[in-house]
Design a protein around this nucleic acid. Structure first.
Lengths: 218, 218, 218, 218
DNA sequence: CATGAATGAGAATTCATTCAT
DNA sequence: GATGAATGAATTCTCATTCAT
């Protein structure tokens, strides 16, 4: 525009790739996160994806289907990646757990990653099967891995005999709340939102407890 | 138009008027929790409240205002109750904390109590001021109380020197996640959802840590 | 209000007179002129009249009836007053006409007097019988008086042989347009809206014509 | 809600799209004249234009905008046509004036032409900016032309020294009143509504006055 | 394949009118 | 007589979906 009349060589006429449906999903995700499903018009999605309304319907039979496709696409990589990574490691499970938590934290720092659970959380009332899908595809895979890690920790004497399933809540809950407080309510600690500090503090309490050693000795 | 046709409308039955707004809010809360704000029609609210559509508008200028009124009404009692109860107690802050957590747990067991935060959480994208209101009226009052309890715990040697603000997440997070998993995703531990077990497990870890004593001694 | 605590003696507790319906009509007229019939709510009328909505319906069976009553009330005095005044005078009819025009002008200066025709003009599409009523009760009485005045003027040699009925338009039209331009479109002559100047100019043209005498002699 | 029930809607028939807004405006104008703005439903407009409700909103953001578009469209051609035609002619301004009045009369005979000012006149209370627009675009262009014509007439000795601005009312007022009486109140002279007769009578009085020559000589 | 004009069910909101108190 | 809470028909406006081009 600025250099009118001058044409640079190169792939100037890159034809839109075959990634159309993905572009639609990207646009939809951004909008659903920003305004919610109900307040997002199909036309908005189309505009943001750079296509026409009709094109959205070319790839998705309905607006609902866009949401569903979105969640489906966002779910797949998860069950695969993290689980295999931490599922079969040997050694002190607390090290593994800490490492996993740190990874979870860093992934949660990416708004793109938070997007899907956020949308699911919001729209679950209107689309119960989304939650079910999310649970089936993500939670049902991830939680057992953590549970068995704890079980091994207890069995091998690294951990006290806690309830493994309930302990999962103690492990992940603080992270979730931290993000919710910051994102939804704007509650930010004096030190800032950087999740690393939270995780340090969390791990310290998680493993060693809040009580002072002196008191603990009592 | 005006001169043609005769309109014949009016009240069918009358009732007291004092509790009317509250009845509307009750109906709205139930429906917002059940179906979400967007999917709830004003007529639904009216029907559930046993009044007509027009009556809803007699007390609330818009559907949005119903939601706002709902949150406002649900928020008021909170800041008052819990805080005074635990804000000024003396003695081991861990005892107080444990007691407060148990109280919070029992209150969270009541779906009526969970209703407001649930709705706020869901509709916050469309109504950011609701979140701000909730933060201002609830969180900004409750969190400092917990923070200062922890500060005192540290100062008086009951607790290790943790970051008090971040520790709030470690204290409440597990409860929140427990409820979210159960309610939203239907993830229920083998032992059931009763929150008491969760709290026992949580408190044990919170105060004494996950690590086995033997390992801790290392 | 300013002299709180001090009560002046006198008819302090004047009970509302039996003029209720008139107060309602006054309120309605003011509002209909200001916002139009459709945009005026019965509640507005009631509020302005200092009564409740129900009371309006105590005196008028419907909102339409208020408008009708308004026009009816405003019409009655007209047919009586002006007509008898100018209908039977003797002498140069031009003097009488000029005098009548000046009176009409001064009456038109009063917004209260303009109010009824203004409302009728506006609402005539929705309430054709109002226009008919106005014509029957006002125009059909007033126009013939003017017509016969002109007829006498022609017969007695005061006026040229014009069409009396059409000439009524030439007599009153300029006044009407002057008011419409000023009120509706805000078109005001440099000299201001005072109707006296307009009437002077109008009468001069009406009786003596626009053409210069020299040209007329041609 | 969204996930339950299948909605199956869409176009039934297609037509060219260029003239669509004009068709809507035509329909709206007819209905606004016939029943008034308030009593005309958007659906009526759509039906009369042979399109669906939604199509009206495709071209106009609101019902108000239809009215505004209507007036805007109706106003444009006016300022152009008549003015250039009579603004620069030389010779006896009375001839020009008479010619202009006759043209105005013949245009006013067309109900289509009367339609816009009629609607503006009626709805001006609810939409003051319409009147302003009409004044700015029509009256502020037309009136000065007439005024300067009169000024020239006076300067060149064709007319008596009247107030040009006020005289505009004397020139146009009779026509306006004639139309209002006929259209609004059904007051029709014995000879019928044909405006030619009125104009003949009007011009005769306008230029030569109502007074008989004998009397004038006095 | 893409487009976007057209459709029309649906939902929020208004307000004239009624009638128990 | 007065009141004003309650009603619900009517209307504007939105937007998911279709389909001729």
């Amino acid at each position: 525009m600025a250099s009118e009349g001058v044409r640079r060589r190169g792939p100037k006429f890159r034809r839109r790739s075959e990634a159309r449906p993905d572009e639609v999903l990207d646009a939809a995700l951004a909008l659903f996160v920003e305004k919610g499903f109900a307040a997002t018009r199909v036309e908005d999605i189309a505009a943001r994806a750079g296509v026409s309304k009709g094109t959205v319907y070319l790839y998705f039979p309905s607006k609902d289907a866009v949401l569903e496709g979105l969640v489906r696409r966002g779910i797949l990589p998860i069950a695969e990646s993290a689980i295999e990574k931490f599922g079969n490691l040997e050694g002190d499970p607390r090290i593994i757990l800490a490492s996993a938590i740190r990874m979870l934290g860093s992934r949660f720092s990416d708004p793109e990653v938070r997007a899907i659970p956020k949308v699911v959380l919001r729209e679950v009332v209107s689309f119960p099967h989304l939650a079910e899908m999310y649970r089936r595809e993500v939670l049902d895979h991830v939680i057992p891995v953590v549970v068995s890690l704890i079980e091994r920790g207890i069995a091998e004497g690294y951990m006290r005999p806690v309830d493994p399933e309930l302990t999962v809540r103690s492990i992940v809950g603080p992270l979730v709340l931290h993000v919710v407080l910051a994102e939804v309510f704007g509650v930010v600690p004096k030190g800032g939102v950087e999740i690393e500090k939270l995780i340090d503090n969390h791990l310290s309490i998680l493993f060693d407890g809040l009580s002072a050693d002196a008191v603990k000795a009592e």
